[in-house]
Design a protein around this nucleic acid. Sequence first.
DNA 1: GTCTGGATGTAATAATGTAACGCTACGATG
DNA 2: CATCGTAGCGTTACATTATTACATCCAGAC
Lengths: 144, 144
Amino acid sequence: MPGILEEADKHCAKTGVRLTPLRRRVLELVARADVPVKAYDLLSQIDHTRTNAKPPTVYRALDFLIDAGLVHRVEALNAFVACPQAGHGHAAVLYVCENCTKVTEVQGTRPGQENKPDGFEVRRSVVEHYGICLSCLKNDTSKT
Amino acid sequence: MPGILEEADKHCAKTGVRLTPLRRRVLELVARADVPVKAYDLLSQIDHTRTNAKPPTVYRALDFLIDAGLVHRVEALNAFVACPQAGHGHAAVLYVCENCTKVTEVQGTRPGQENKPDGFEVRRSVVEHYGICLSCLKNDTSKT
DNA sequence: GTCTGGATGTAATAATGTAACGCTACGATG
DNA sequence: CATCGTAGCGTTACATTATTACATCCAGAC
Ligand SMILES: [Zn+2]
Ligand SMILES: [Zn+2]
Ligand SMILES: [Zn+2]
Ligand SMILES: [Zn+2]
């Protein structure tokens, strides 16, 4: 795989938005973790000798990355994951393992709108499935 | 309709859990509002001459009500809505209007599990669609 | 009565998120 | 070049949301 950062560079160049060093650094931190990351964890990981990051710093960067479609917010965890597909503005379908906390983002799927009320115009969807991933089910030592 | 509180009484009697006055009061407050309610709003609405409610009070009551399937948490709003169907433990599909903030819970639908990863065992699903309801679309005066 | 577990009270604090304002750097415009 | 406007970030202060830990109360079991 080509690396999320390089993909992000390309994506931002194409869409004409600026992936500044700070934003790129935050994306790097989110992408490096293979589990959802908390905003304040990001804050503490930013190099404080180079920037003087405060909460607004990281929240602004995250807002940018989310708008750019590079990061998704995991609503039920107050946490963030990097999007493996740099698809602008797509709605994510996430499977979150409650044991190992890893997130799998389903590729190329639109969230289903079950029994949508008549005339409702959906702008944004949050779809998060919580459970146990195959790998954790296999390695489960706590079998009753 | 028979009233959410009476339904809740029946439901709790049947499942053998205790809908105490405090919990019932919180459910009443959630049910009375036709929009999602915040925990601290509930806290301020509880009668402080009779109980001495603090944050844990309301969060504990909400936890109980959610476990009992009487209330759903709206994850992306940090807010709570009463469930119109007292179905224990069902996963809710919610349509939230970003204009009037009203929530429509789709009845009798299981959230779709789009392209579920192999072997993933789903325990709980969060499905929230944000947009504009029909009524707000009709009354829209901000037509460009 | 005494014991016990669930429910609630209480204090303190953690964790998460935002508002408001100012400064700086940079590109556009004339 | 001058100046203007704006995006990005710094900075302070604060607001909102949620939890931990421990004490107390109280109904039902024995
Ligand atoms: Zn994605
Ligand atoms: Zn797992
Ligand atoms: Zn429901
Ligand atoms: Zn509406």
